[in-house]
Design a binder for these strands. Structure first.
Lengths: 197, 197
DNA sequence: TTAAAATAATAGACAGTGTTCAATTTTATG
DNA sequence: CATAAAATTGAACACTGTCTATTATTTTAA
């Protein structure tokens, strides 16, 4: 059959990503099924492969969307932030991950094979996220230290990421730690204080 | 058939874990196959399930072994360390992950379902690893701050873990960062310095 | 020594998965 | 309307983890 409804190709693509997003959020990375996505939007598995080409590229498209939602989440929080924007940033990192654990973890669960290229949109959304952090870090640093903001921002992202990962996968609970967020924030503050001096 | 060779049950268990370890190191978590493990040691898939009961418990057994090797790796490095034991620790964390990327990542790739319990040996090996770090952190802290060593150690593990994760999955390379290890070490030093003051 | 019980191992069946692709149906165009 | 183009299908393939009835061996008991 050919085009069977009023959906353009772009709209079909959106439908698949949207339903895929829903599925990934519900089932998690390991139980995600492209067949199930197709079934739920009333298409067959072949259509998914015509549009996305592979499982990897479908996941990539879904993760790109997650990145965008995550960046939106941070921007919204920063928009209505009181003075402590660094805390807002760390809390925003954690809260998105906690509110969307399967989606957030899927970003890091998915390791793309060497033969499949990273889509430009994916890299763009990812870049925006780091840009948000970098600009906030720069704001907090005194003029002479500001040149080091990008590098410090990457490092602070890694620091918060590590705390968030171990929080979500239960490692901190196993270690008897009940407040990973405050732990992460303390580390970030120390590093910023050191950069100021 | 019954026992067909001179392998005791415990020896068979070891054989499976050993070959599984090899497979996991080669293929990585997503391409790991219990069937392939069985085939390579000359047994059938059923035997794996008689011994381990499920895919999850096999992975758990393999990851337990990885934890032990990792702890050994750190102990060996600390044993022949010069004065800078903190650097040795961070470097040991990174070097094990870099030398065994698939095994190291598999530890965090594997999310065990809520219905399968964590084996005591798993938790024990994991505990030893954090103990190594905690004791080194305690050594570096002045007497009055030493009570906070366990909590700080957890946090520093998370910090280094985050840097190591983003290093191995290519995020740092994408961000243009070429030396994640030194970044991690700098953050750790800052936090230790802050704890001393 | 032989019979019974316990153990070990197998291989096939089942329901899934990602992937491919020839066949088919729908739409658009001349 | 006829034809070309595009979109969609679903069966087939080679896998996967999991379960189970069957068979073979070893151990134990009589």
């Amino acid at each position: 059959m050919g085009r069977r409804s009023d959906h353009s190709r772009a709209e079909l693509e959106r439908m698949i990503v949207l339903e895929g997003h829903r599925q990934l959020a519900e089932a998690g990375f390991s139980r995600f099924s492209a067949r199930e996505v197709a079934k739920r939007i009333g298409y067959s598995i072949g259509t998914i492969y015509n549009v996305f080409g592979s499982h990897d590229r479908l996941i990539l498209a879904i993760n790109t969307r997650t990145f965008r939602l995550w960046a939106d989440h941070l921007r919204a929080r920063l928009g209505s932030a009181d003075g402590d924007r660094i805390r807002t940033l760390v809390e925003g990192y954690f809260s998105f991950a906690r509110e969307n654990p399967n989606l957030w973890m899927a970003i890091y669960d998915h390791r793309l094979p060497p033969d499949v290229a990273m889509p430009p949109e994916y890299q763009a959304e990812r870049g925006e996220l780091t840009e948000i952090v970098t600009s906030e870090v720069a704001k907090v640093l005194p003029e002479p230290a500001r040149a080091g903001a990008p590098r410090l921002a990457r490092s602070l992202i890694a620091t918060v990421h590590g705390h968030c990962t171990l929080a979500l996968n239960g490692t901190f609970a196993l270690m008897g730690e009940s407040n990973p967020l405050e732990l992460a924030l303390a580390r970030v503050r120390e590093s910023l204080a050191a950069a100021k001096a």
